[in-house]
Design a binder for these strands. Sequence first.
DNA 1: ATGTGC
Length: 484
Amino acid sequence: MNFNEQQQAGGYDSRYKHELALPGGDLKVYASEQLFATLDYKVLEMANNNLQIPNIEYMSYTPDVHVGVGTCIGTTAVWDAADGYVSPSIVGSDIGCGMRVHLTTLHKDDLREVKLRRKLVRAIEKYLPMEQQQRGTYSDIRLENIVRKGLHGLPNKYVPDSYTPKKSSALSHVEISKLSFDEEILNELPDMAWHRGHRQLGTLGGGNHFVEIQAIEIAEEQRELAEAWGLRDGQIAVMIHSGSRAWGGMVNQFCTPAFAKVMGQLGLGSADPRLIYAPLAHPQARRYVNLMYSALNYAVVNRHLIAYAVREGFRDVFGPKCELRTLYDLMHNYAWQEQTAAGTKFVHRKGATRALPAGHPDNPRPYAATGHPALIPGSMGTASYIMVGQPGGEENYYSICHGAGRIRSRSATKRLVSVNDFSKSLRVGREDEIVVNQHSLESIIDESPQAYKNVDEIIESVTGAGLAAVVAKCKPLAAIKGTK
DNA sequence: ATGTGC
């Protein structure tokens, strides 16, 4: 029985699911035997710390889990909304970090020539704002409107009909277009947050953030769904990975001392000083949640503006009729309330993606009947995936992986991986080279595929466990990376 | 990840 047959049979395979009784509480780990065997003890130690936060109801790891600050990347942690806790450490610094995919009307044959891929990369770079340079700052966009209203705070010209054939699809084909919150708190953020927040709008950032030009390969078992979503074999898609830039970091910096103080006052302990939390009902927790929502609004607009720049670049190369329809935009670092059969829960996801199945009421309207696309990036030079949630995901609050998952620290990668290896995995010098904007591969070597787990094994674990199914594989043709 | 921290 292969994975797809298992899925069709509707059951999950216990080989992909491990239940651990740690001293602090129970942890579920979704991973193949091989991936499970490679888990660092530090990953379990971190889970044990997180499980000691009071009233926690559920915690799990996705197969791409790896060590983070205070909490692992790949964590789903759930409290009841009535007596719950919120932890800025579980959300992480890059609040609202996530993925976006746009579908073009082009076919991979249109980009067969390496020269043309280079031209496209240069054209996109021309429109992508760079914080360090004067050019590109969106002077007609008010940051205050962005953090308060998300995509609805953008001037109309950034949500044009040609960008997404129906203007509404730019607002409806996303996980969030706007989160409302108590805006009073915004006045307390330092001037620096506003200054940098404005300058960085629409910028990519560094690390694993990217814009990638990809070719779609539909999974046969999901062809009907893929076509309903508008996917075609060989179609060129654009995948974007970015977050809330410094704004999210400022929110965390601003809230951290207050959380430390609250923990002291309430006598709440933590085995790791970098792991902070507070009861949801506490005024400081409310402040954090409100500010976190402003960062989620920032992040979705940031990705939207990156897509806007990409579309300008495509038009320079392929003409003004070129369209980049929004397939979906969703996050993998956030916490919010969700309705479940067992009541209202406060769900944290850090490096975990929500993948809702067909018919789930929280799907955005256009995807109500099918489930929404769940967008999973691979490492540089390897494939990414477009997936859809399965009913079996309910046991894990519909969380799946968020990518390949690091196996080597940035420093270790710089030590152990040669530029030559990296360049080989990008097929540099061949006609099918994955064109990268950065001339020096040295500067981004910590993002080489050798620093990551094999994304195919991650995906196998998720499908094997019955959490989601592959709709399409997206093979990279060109990538744009920021530097620090 | 990041106005990081050598």
